[in-house]
């Protein structure tokens, strides 16, 4: 599936939830399910420090596609990380660098990607795109 097909799939998935509670419950569920990043990759080098929560991001390029794994110390952040990974991992570097991420706004979790939240997510997206840019 392409990045946009995956974004639309997630938007569709979230459209079943009536209110923020259900959306948060689902995000928390996803956060708890997310496979942890390999502990050896949880180094300071891979750490994206936010004021509120922290994110670890590991990336590997293979045949023009980028494989991402990530983790966070906060479960809501981690749930959103898991959505970002689902959309962006194993996609062509060029697409990762160029595609706009519109799903977060559509599923009503936009505030978690705002700079005032300082949860490491915005920096993580930037780093994913910058990493991809090197190979696109």
């Amino acid at each position: 599936m392409t990045i946009n097909e995956l974004q639309d799939e997630i938007i569709d998935e979230f459209s079943f939830f009536d209110d923020w509670m259900d959306r948060y419950e689902h995000i928390i569920y996803l956060g708890k399910k997310l496979p942890m990043i390999d502990p050896s990759a949880k180094t300071d080098e891979k750490l994206i420090k936010g004021c509120q929560s922290q994110v670890w991001l590991d990336a590997e390029e293979k045949d023009g596609k980028i494989h991402f794994t990530a983790d966070s110390d906060a479960v809501i952040t981690k749930g959103i990380v898991s959505l970002l990974i689902r959309i962006l991992t194993n996609q062509p570097a060029k697409d990762i660098a160029e595609q706009e991420l519109y799903f977060i706004d559509k599923i009503g979790l936009k505030e978690h990607l705002s700079p005032t939240r300082s949860n490491g997510l915005l920096s993580m997206v930037r780093q994913m795109k910058m990493y991809a840019l090197k190979f696109s």
Partner: peptide, 13 residues
């Protein structure tokens, strides 16, 4: 077992 950020995000709502 919880992170302050998660608690704050729910209280915000």
């Amino acid at each position: 077992g919880t992170h302050p950020y998660d608690v704050g995000a729910i209280l915000d709502k």
